[in-house]
């Protein structure tokens, strides 16, 4: 495929290099016609003559032998998003009969080594670990609940005393908890919040019309996203 794509470009370059000394004619400034990629039409036809998808071929061998066209339903749906009405097995309650019906499949999927070597479709599926994670870090571990009430009081006192030094990040590092937990526990004094807000407004005032429009559109898109409209 690579050579197919590269060939017209290379020929084009060669022609341009040879014509560099001459003055360009109007015909050369026109966009190039899409190249066929094959030297002859017969070769191009042969290259494009790909076999149909296996589901479109008649699977009935006996019908082929007798050369009789048989009627059958071809089920080959296009790839589409899964319906939310199909509950994942993990979400089924223990009492649901579908759990028992799917038990063999789940066991086969969980340990592919024990299942048959090549014919099973579960072995051809890529494993979950082969898909890259979106977040760089591993998921947050279970909450340890290691902070006492006194610790939280201390955290609040520090945040109220000097919100600039005792920022959310530094408090999280100091008390060995997540930043979300610090945000849940304490709130900066009102003056500090207003100051930070003023700084933010100062930055926003420097935005040009394009950046502002882009931000507004993004906010509107987010509303649509959370309402499930896009």
């Amino acid at each position: 495929m690579e050579t197919l794509l590269m060939r017209p470009v290379a020929s084009c370059c060669r022609r341009l290099a040879s014509s560099a000394t001459r003055t360009p004619t109007p015909a050369m400034l026109l966009p190039q016609q899409p190249a066929r990629g094959k030297a002859t039409s017969a070769r191009a036809r042969r290259a494009l003559n790909i076999p149909p998808h296996p589901s479109f071929l008649n699977s009935n061998k006996t019908a082929d032998a007798s050369n009789q066209p048989t009627e059958e339903i071809i089920y080959n749906p296009p790839e589409s998003a899964a319906s939310v009405y199909h509950t994942p097995v993990k979400f089924l309650p223990p009492s649901d009969p579908r759990r028992r019906a799917n038990l063999a499949e789940i066991l086969a999927a969980s340990n592919p080594a024990s299942s048959s070597s090549s014919s099973s479709p579960s072995t051809t599926q890529p494993s979950v670990e082969s898909f890259p994670m979106l977040s760089k870090s591993a998921p947050a571990p279970k909450p340890r609940h290691h902070l006492t009430k006194e610790d939280i009081e201390e955290m609040r006192r520090l945040r109220a005393e000097d919100p600039v030094t005792n920022s959310v990040v530094s408090l999280a590092r100091r008390f060995d908890c997540s930043q979300l937990f610090v945000l849940m526990c304490c709130q900066a004094p009102k003056e500090h919040r207003e100051k930070m807000k003023a700084v933010e407004e100062k930055y926003k005032a420097r935005w040009g019309p394009r950046r502002r429009a882009a931000r507004e559109e993004r906010a509107r898109r987010n509303v649509l996203l959370y309402n499930g409209e896009i």
Partner: peptide, 9 residues
């Protein structure tokens, strides 16, 4: 979608 499939069981 995951939450919807939970709620729409």
């Amino acid at each position: 979608n995951a939450l919807k499939s939970w709620y729409l069981y």
